[in-house]
């Protein structure tokens, strides 16, 4: 069985950002793996560790990996260097990485990104494609469904935890839907997008970090198939500070004063 995990590198999610022209100014902030993609990779690793993912590929004639094994392949697309993210993913436990390198540094819309990733994935023949529900930079939440559409397979979105159902195999997933959860079963191959669930991503050990250096990273040049009809015309940092009216006094008076101020400012029932 082969699980492909889509991985994106994003700027540190705790750093303050400013905009210069149409691009953010990252300053000295560190690049990290998109946290949602990290949840997806953790889910893939757990699926392999559960032992269920060794099932032979259900893709007829597909290169789903030799029977009795489960391969986890990272797939990433980035104009900028992505060494940190790929290396971290390999250290977490992925077997190898495929890096799609665009010919130019232009920004790609989710549609272009998803379609090109799907072309790369077609050469790998995955049984499962896992990715974050969204990326902590463009916040688009589109690449999973676009990849699923381009591959012509089903999508399972907002997954908190996943397992394999045998025989089948099928992906059994618990998906967050606002206030409730949907328990779904989806035939393979399929695309699943992940949110933060009960299992947090692991920290690689020193041994994992050393062995990651030996893992293969395959690079392929790519270019978008179309010109986007949606372009960014401005990027701004919104004002951070607010009125900050400080209310003093004992707990009871402060509570009453706060409620009065809230009532004068917003109508919560409308």
């Amino acid at each position: 069985m082969r699980i492909c995990v889509l991985l994106k590198q994003v700027p540190d999610t705790s750093a303050r950002l400013q905009a210069v022209g149409l691009e953010p100014l990252f300053g000295g902030c560190l690049p990290v793996v998109n946290p949602y993609d990290e949840f997806a990779l953790e889910a893939a690793l757990r699926l392999r560790e559960s032992g269920a993912a060794v099932h032979p590929s259900p893709v007829p004639g597909g290169p789903g990996g030799p029977e009795g094994s489960c391969e986890i392949v990272l797939v990433t697309l980035c104009a900028a260097p992505v060494e940190e993210a790929v290396f971290h993913g390999l250290a977490m436990g992925a077997d190898r990485a495929v890096v799609a390198e665009p010919s130019s540094g232009a920004r790609w819309t989710p549609l272009e990104t998803g379609r090109v990733l799907a072309e790369v994935l077609k050469t790998l023949g995955p049984d499962l494609v896992f990715c974050g529900e969204k990326a902590a930079d463009d916040e688009a939440a589109q690449v999973g469904p676009i990849v699923a559409e381009a591959l012509g397979v089903a999508q399972v979105c907002g997954v908190e935890s996943a397992a394999l159902e045998l025989p089948g195999p099928a992906l059994r997933a618990r998906c967050r839907r606002g206030n409730s959860f949907h328990e779904v079963s989806c035939g393979l191959p399929c695309v699943a997008t992940f949110l933060r669930g009960p299992a947090l991503p692991r920290y690689p050990s020193m041994a994992d970090i050393f062995s990651a250096k030996e893992k293969p990273v395959h690079r392929i040049p790519v270019s978008p198939a179309r010109v986007s009809a949606l372009r960014r015309v401005s990027l701004t940092a919104p004002p951070e500070e607010r009125g900050r009216k400080m209310i003093r006094g004992g707990a009871r008076e402060a509570a009453q004063a706060l409620l009065d101020l809230i009532d004068r400012s917003v109508d919560c029932r409308a």
């Binding site: 500070e241 607010r242 900050r244 009216k245 003093r248 402060a254 009453q256 409620l259 809230i262």
Partner: peptide, 19 residues
């Protein structure tokens, strides 16, 4: 507090039940 419209400096275990 810098990011709030209104702030109460106090013990939430006292303020919240009153609120």
């Amino acid at each position: 507090f810098r990011f709030a419209d209104a702030g109460v400096v106090g013990d939430l275990f006292e303020v919240v039940p009153r609120l």
